[in-house]
Each structure stands twice: as C-alpha cells, then as structure tokens.
Design a protein around this nucleic acid. Sequence first.
DNA 1: ATTATATATGAGCATATGTTCATATGTATG
DNA 2: CATACATATGAACATATGCTCATATATAAT
Lengths: 102, 102
Amino acid sequence: MKMEDHSFLKSETIENVSRIFKVLADPTRIKILYLLSQEECNVNHIAEVLEMSQSAVSHQLSMLRNLRLVKYRREGKTLFYSCDDEHVISLLKQAIDHSEHH
Amino acid sequence: MKMEDHSFLKSETIENVSRIFKVLADPTRIKILYLLSQEECNVNHIAEVLEMSQSAVSHQLSMLRNLRLVKYRREGKTLFYSCDDEHVISLLKQAIDHSEHH
DNA sequence: ATTATATATGAGCATATGTTCATATGTATG
DNA sequence: CATACATATGAACATATGCTCATATATAAT
C-alpha cells in the first residue's frame, strides 16, 4: 500500500481516543466506574467499598468530572455521583466481558 | 446498597482490563494498531508512515507481541507484522467511531 | 568471511501518573 | 458564630512510561 492510499486518523481523533482509553487504563478508575454503573454513590461510600482514601477517590472523581464521564447531585453535605457517559461504560463492560470469558 | 450486595470484579479481571486499555491509551500504539488493522506491514514501513524512529516502533511492537496483540511472519530479512486480536481492534474501532461522530 | 540491510534490545532520561499528607471549602446544626 | 461532617484541592513523592542513543542480532549477498 502506498503512503497516499492510507486512511489516516485525524490527530484530534487520536487524541480523543487516547484520552478515553487512558481513563479506562487505571484499576482504580475501572472500579469506580464499574461501581457507579451499578448504583449512584457518595464519595465516602466509594472510598469504603473500594478501600481507598477519601482523598484518592476525590482526586479521581475530579478527573472523571472534568472529562464528563460522571455527574453528581448534592443532598445536604453529601454528593451523589453517577455515570454520565454510556459509551465509555459500554467499552468498559465489553472489555470486562471479554476478559471473563476467555 | 449494602457492601455484601455488590457484584465485585475479580482482581484478575481488573488487571486484564487495565492491561488492554493501557495498550490502547497511547497515541503511537493507536496509530500502529490502526495501520496494522488495514494492512500487514514491515517495521520500516510503519516507521516511515508514522514518522517514528525504527527503534521506537520496534520497542512498541515488542510490547504488542508480548501481549499477543500482533503476530509476524518473516520474509528474508523483513518481518511483516499484523493484528492478532480482533477484540482489541474492535474496541479501538468503536472508540474511533464514537470520537468521529460526536 | 565480510559487508549491508532489517530488526531487536538495553541503558538512560524526561515526562506523566496516582497516591498521601495537610489543609481548604462548603453545608448543616447547636 | 462555632463546630462537625462531607468533599475538594495543592504540593510532594515514588513509580511507570515512551523515547533516544548506542549496540546487538539475524539474514542475505558478494
């Protein structure tokens, strides 16, 4: 195949795709997203269930928020987080499914 | 939801999933895998098309080989690489598709 | 055997990433 | 307003990652 016959990816596309997969590449974020795909959770609950510090969870949620992968609603002092990107959850669940059945 | 009612992921699953996404999280590997999904390529061809050093390409191919995501065949001095994991290519193409249509 | 070409690999380096620790912010309650 | 609780955030640190440079290995041709 000649150089000029390749279908190249736009660099913007490559950056976007890389960004999505970077999020999903970390075990902690996999756990958080999987948990949030099952139920809305407050921060402390996530920290307890996943046995992580409140700070570590909050930092990760901050990142997921910036990337619009999660959203939250406030109830008094408590913030309830949930998933806000079905496509990313779909990619995650496919990878989980594949890993568990091979 | 109570602690004991969660469906947790096995740590082995989490590690596997993380490993898959780590591979796909790097722009260089995205380009290599996408190129190889289109055609079988030798190392120098990849380096030229992607404007990378031979060494950098070879290091990445070494990683992709170890993870069984690519395979190769020899023809004289030349090694021709191709994809060896349809599922990973499928995840990649879905992410590309999503990125390009949103 | 020597030389050329194709690819692989190890060491070193710069940058990115995820955590902890300390502290700040925001909200309800006495 | 003072205190407690829930969450956020900045700095520092340790580890991981991807590249370059130099060199090694493998194959073919002379």
